[in-house]
């Protein structure tokens, strides 16, 4: 039961959808995150059976409460949590209750600082906003959003989930582009009027580039019929 409404004290299990629209009892939108070890004896709430959607959302709600969480979380469950250890709080707390939660939490945690500040600045969130948030946010969006914030600051953890590889923006995109260039590109357009050529690629490819376009496209002449038969 890691989440507690800071206004009325109602508690919610980790990943609860209810709290995403605000506290159903008092409408409050600030929640305190309680580490699993602290709340375990109160009401063990396994999170393994929860749908991933709600599970992934938990970091964002965690974030809202992270400032208070730091105050309330005892040293018992996590060693020396300092001010920038929101990530640690997220990561260590759910380990017993969220066995299926992978790196997205850890990644999202990096974004916590700035994210939670935004949230705190918002004094009130009306019903429409709350509803929109609870209805629309999908795990993918959450993943993307969290990575956007952490752009460039850190690369995904080695064990990160598959989606991070395919749609994860920035950190590695330049490396990836370079790698792709090296692997596939025979003509690299550095800028208009500036080209780099991979002679071996040009020599090796059967089709023949006959016209470069301004916008980076190019026209090729396909191999003749004999060549196609061979392939």
């Amino acid at each position: 039961m890691p989440h507690q409404c800071t206004t009325c004290g109602r508690t919610f299990p980790d990943g609860s959808k209810e709290m995403l629209s605000g506290c159903p009892d008092c409408g409050g939108n600030k929640f305190q995150f309680k580490p699993a070890s602290e709340t375990a004896d109160e009401q063990p709430s396994p999170g393994g059976d929860k749908p991933p959607a709600t599970d992934r959302q938990s970091p964002s709600t965690d974030r809202q409460s992270s400032p208070t969480d730091r105050q309330s979380s005892p040293a018992g469950s996590q060693p020396a949590a300092d001010d920038n250890s929101t990530a640690d709080a997220d990561a260590s707390a759910p380990e017993s209750s969220r066995p299926d939660s992978g790196t997205p939490d850890g990644q999202a945690a990096n974004a916590n600082a700035s994210d939670s500040e935004h949230v705190r600045e918002r004094s009130q969130e009306d019903v429409a906003q709350a509803s929109a948030r609870s209805d629309v946010v999908s795990p993918d969006e959450l993943d993307r959003a969290s990575r956007d914030v952490e752009t460039g600051s850190s690369s995904p953890e080695p064990g990160s989930d598959a989606p991070t590889d395919t749609e994860g923006p920035r950190p590695d995109i330049n490396d990836l582009r370079e790698e792709l260039n090296e692997q596939f590109e025979s003509i690299r357009i550095v800028s208009p009027g500036k080209y780099e050529l991979n002679l071996m690629e040009l020599y090796d490819r059967q089709e023949y580039i006959i016209s470069l376009q301004e916008d980076g496209r190019y026209v090729i002449e396909m191999p003749d019929a004999w060549g196609i038969d061979d392939e």
Binding site: S186, Y195, L199, L202, I209, I210
Partner: peptide, 15 residues
């Protein structure tokens, strides 16, 4: 410059 680049591609193709 663009034509020269096309030309290199052509030269390599001829080769």
């Amino acid at each position: 410059s663009r034509e020269a680049t096309e030309g290199v591609a052509e030269a390599m193709h001829w080769l």
